[in-house]
Simulated scan of single mutants.
Amino acid sequence: MNAPLYAVVTGSDSGIGKAIAVALAGGGVDVGITYHQDSAGAIRTAEEVRQAGARCAVRQLDLTDLPGAAAVVDELADELGGVDVLVNCAGTGSSEKALDMDYATWRSVLSVDLDGAFLCAQRAARRMIAAGRGGRIINITSVHEHLPRVGAAPYCAAKAGLGALTQVLALELSEHGITVNSVAPGEISTPMTGQEDVDPHTEPRHGVPLGRPGHAKEVAAVVAFLATPAASYLTGASIVVDGGMSLMGPQASQLMTDEKWRQI
């Protein structure tokens, strides 16, 4: 596939999504930006995209209002001129044990993190097939695509499901030259973790081999690579960006108060 020209990045008003939008713009890609409630954040992202020399379009996207809300992908593609890259980054979570959770909470998380990603991917893939230029679909999952966490039942279920969906789509869309991969971050300094604008190097994490959280730009760099021709033979993969957290187990890694584990 030629260098992609147009991308849609859901949930790009802040955090990882914002960093991805700006990174793609730096590579000459025009970007469709979506937000749920933070319109001011989306405007800030748009300003940075334009400063990087790319065009952009902005739409509100509420992935609890499905299936209709996914039409935003088509709206952005129409305004930009197409869609060569879709990054499913919009997400939410919960912090409650499964037995205490009501069904509405369960469904809300699944709707945003899994149903929404499926419907956006479906619409983007149809556009890519019609254009005949191939494409890239990149799903932002989590280390919890692979490993569980207490208090995050719907989040873990959704991310694991999105990881499996990534693999199925990689098989089904391969004949059209569309690659589908997931990027699985660990703890990243973002508004979602209460660490917006925090230098992760100042936040020690004894249970993480690299000793700190990640920066949103470090995730964005991997996504930007997947959107380039250099990644044209990579599909169906899950790339974990977690500083080694998953090697330790995400549950235990956050409870360690020293680094005695490094000793023999």
Rank of each mutant, 00 (worst) to 15 (best):
G116T: 10
C156N: 15
R107P: 01
P148E: 06
L119A: 09
L147G: 00
G132M: 14
A160L: 09
Q122K: 15
S142R: 02
C156Y: 00
M128N: 01
A130I: 14
F118M: 00
R133L: 09
A117D: 04
A124S: 09
G151R: 02
E145F: 13
F118Y: 12
P148S: 07
I138S: 01
I140G: 01
V143E: 04
W106L: 12
Q122V: 05
H144T: 06
A124K: 06
G135E: 03
S111C: 11
Y155A: 00
T141N: 12
D113C: 15
P148I: 11
C120M: 12
R123T: 09
L147A: 09
T141G: 10
L114A: 08
G116W: 04
I140R: 04
L119K: 00
A158T: 14
E145S: 08
R149T: 10
A158Q: 09
K159Q: 13
G134P: 07
I137W: 01
P154L: 15
G132L: 14
S142M: 14
H144K: 13
A160K: 05
S108P: 00
H144G: 00
S142I: 11
S108T: 13
M128G: 09
A125P: 05
Y155S: 02
G134F: 10
R127N: 07
R107N: 11
G134K: 03
F118C: 04
A158L: 10
R149D: 08
I138G: 03
N139F: 07
R126P: 12
I137N: 02
I138D: 03
I138W: 08
L147P: 00
T141D: 06
A131P: 02
G151T: 07
A121M: 07
V150W: 11
C156K: 06
V112Q: 11
C156A: 14
D113I: 06
G116K: 06
L147C: 01
H146T: 07
R133G: 06
H146W: 15
S142E: 07
L110Y: 12
L110R: 11
A121L: 09
G132H: 02
P148V: 12
V143D: 00
R149W: 15
R136P: 01
R127H: 11
F118L: 14
P154D: 12
I140Y: 01
A152E: 08
P148T: 04
L147N: 07
Q122T: 08
R136D: 02
P154G: 06
A131D: 12
G151K: 05
G132P: 06
I140M: 15
R123F: 09
N139K: 15
K159P: 00
K159R: 04
E145C: 13
L114K: 01
W106G: 05
S111P: 08
P148H: 10
C156M: 05
Q122S: 09
L114R: 02
H146C: 11
T105S: 13
A160I: 15
L119T: 02
V150G: 09
R136M: 03
M128A: 04
